[in-house]
Design a protein around this nucleic acid. Structure first.
Lengths: 224, 224
DNA sequence: TCATGAACATTGCGGAAGCATTGCGAAACA
DNA sequence: TGTTTCGCAATGCTTCCGCAATGTTCATGA
């Protein structure tokens, strides 16, 4: 579990960090709104613990920014103020829960657990063809739901072909997708990979086929 | 929005009902645990407002029953008691939020809105694979019911893999889960942990296996 | 239609890159 | 302060990859 702690008071921050670590959480620590925004943008967290009183503004203002960026990370807001209208603000701005300081650490933990209970599986783009599913985000090929191990280069070939299922992919464009720019390949390495991929697909799936077209390139086709 | 209100005190119940209606919520009203259970089983609600002090027992006991039936309706617990340990109880039993009486109606509404915004809490607290059970609430691994001690880093690896049992977990994503940001690991530390974890799993369980996939990452698989 | 050459297909091989495992010293923890 | 755990580096091992050799297909032209 990875947590972003946004708290400028050094003592409290350090105590919380230690306590959270005791529960096997990996904690990143930001001390300002600005820093917090950067962290949240560049890393991915399971939850954010957010103090309101920060040197460069009200922590709450971070929440709508995150949401606008499509970041749905659960946010637990910590604050010294505890009257009702403040709570309402926090929850209405898209925070997920609210905890008034001072708090018992146990309660913090329990609330955190409640937030983390939600599914953590990030949805990524998946392309289907035949009985194949290619999960781009996780760089994984599934055959009828079962993962199939593929070497890196073959995976790249398959990816490039699947992105244009049923249509031609130029040889040059395949080369670029598989080898990039830096490698200067001077053999039939590409053909080799295509060949090996073909065999594996035939064994595992049998419903897709890679056709070569002389002088042009390759295309992947579903066979009926 | 359809709400189930579980509250035996007639006056309070009536007031809440009226207030909720004003916000266009459809309210069903139960006055006992038994009745609440029936309602929840036969109808479907967007949220449940649950008093703890009911004529036939502690309202909280309803929550695990619901969850066991696969009912993931958000539950907001209302109670006169407000010390920390009670709150922890409530949240750990699967309730989603907690509000101490007396409360401002505005806060109730804000918390309710926050609950309704959440994606349904479907994920269990415990993940099973082979003879393993990973209890997220208590941060503990059980092998055939017996607790198994694991160092922090290995536990993090296992957790990350179990959250996607049978599917790829990218190396980078594992690194994040295990080390976070601040550590700049420049060795094969991750491989080390995976290796040690492998050995322990093989000894203790034998029904799960961690497969490495070159250039991509790892996946945890149940072996048949 | 057949000969011919060019482009693609397949397969084995050696070097290399990536992973697995283990011991060790330092750091964290109790 | 004794114990556990962690990061690291050294070692051995498996897999992968580019290559080249060989086989196959296909278009072309006589």
């Amino acid at each position: 579990m990875r947590i972003l702690l946004v708290e400028d008071e050094p003592e409290l921050a350090s105590a919380m960090r230690t306590a959270l670590r005791r529960y096997d959480m990996v904690v990143d620590h930001a001390t300002s709104l600005l820093e917090a925004g950067d962290f949240a943008a560049s890393e991915s967290y399971d939850a954010i613990l957010l103090d309101r009183q920060l040197p460069d503004g009200d922590g709450l203002t971070l929440v709508p920014k995150l949401r606008a960026r499509g970041n749905a990370t659960p946010v637990l807001v910590l604050t010294a103020r505890s009257d009702t209208s403040d709570k309402v603000d926090g929850l209405d701005m898209g925070a997920d829960d609210y905890l008034a300081k001072p708090f018992a650490f146990e309660e913090l933990l329990a609330r955190l657990r409640a937030l983390l209970r939600r599914p953590a599986n990030v949805q990524t783009q998946v392309i289907h063809a035949g009985d194949l599913a290619f999960d781009f985000g996780h760089r994984e090929v599934l055959v009828r739901g079962e993962p199939m191990a593929l070497p890196r280069r073959e995976l790249l070939v398959l990816e490039a072909l699947l992105r244009r299922t049923g249509r031609m992919v130029q040889r040059s464009s395949l080369m670029e997708a598989v080898f990039g720019l830096d490698d200067e390949i001077q053999s039939n390495a590409l053909d080799t990979h295509v060949s090996r991929l073909r065999r594996k697909l035939a064994e595992a799936d049998g419903k897709v086929e890679i056709n070569g077209v002389r002088g042009v390139g390759y295309l992947l086709r579903e066979i009926s």
